[in-house]
Design a protein around this nucleic acid. Structure first.
Lengths: 117, 117
DNA sequence: GCTGTTGTCAACCGAATGGTTGAGCAAATC
DNA sequence: GATTTGCTCAACCATTCGGTTGACAACAGC
């Protein structure tokens, strides 16, 4: 995925359960590649690639201490994904409202049935 | 991408500018494949494929009227993506708070400098 | 019953993804 | 200085992606 726009790179990085688990781990604080690879049945090289995808998506930042290359969460990209979703919030809230209306009506009708019985 | 988990399918569907533009169009209301393809310099087959990806991501629903196959936004998947992001909200809010603190400190220091001048 | 419109399916293509193994680098340790 | 540890790079592989073209199905209108 060469020269993609930032938002696409972010969403693409999020579209993988392994990478989302890595992010979950990083939410608890900095970690090295070794530590991140630990829980997975996968080579460290594979994890290294996942980290590169996360980095391109702006989701993590990497530092350098000795031969270790610790990663930390970079929340700005997450916020930008959230900002994009924000533009659609009213859609699911409206849908939720309609659902509530419907449930209320159904309940009213059931109450009527009950009174007739 | 076979038998992916729903959240991954949703994020993957969002990771393409064409598909996000399609969603933006659908936010204004139902549209046919032809109408959706209109603004793009791309075959209708390509759009049809994008729609299939969006459908697999749970982002759109399709009905059937005559030979037309209109699409509409399905906001639940967007909400679920948002719910996932919700778990990280505190991270970017904390970061924002730290930035505010920093800016406040810088401003204080500049005020000191000013008083010394 | 033709003809045009709308849309999908199938096959193909080049590029990207997600994994592997093997080699190698750089810093810490013996 | 030799070895181990932590990590990346390069090459390879199968699969998926994003687009194309061509054929065709289903319905509408003449």
């Amino acid at each position: 995925m060469p020269e993609t726009d930032p938002l696409s790179a972010t969403f693409a990085a999020l579209a993988d359960p392994t990478r989302r688990m890595i992010l979950a781990r990083l939410a608890d604080g900095e970690a090295t590649v070794k530590e991140l690879a630990e829980p997975f049945d996968m080579s460290m090289q594979a994890i290294s690639k996942h980290l590169k995808v996360l980095e391109r998506g702006g989701l993590i930042a990497r530092s350098k201490q000795a031969q270790r290359r610790p990663c930390q969460l970079e929340p700005l990209a997450l916020k930008q994904a959230d900002d994009w979703l924000e533009g659609y919030r009213r859609h699911w809230e409206e849908r939720f409202d309609r659902l509530s209306d419907y449930l209320r009506k159904v309940q009213d009708r059931e109450s009527d049935d009950g009174s007739k019985r």
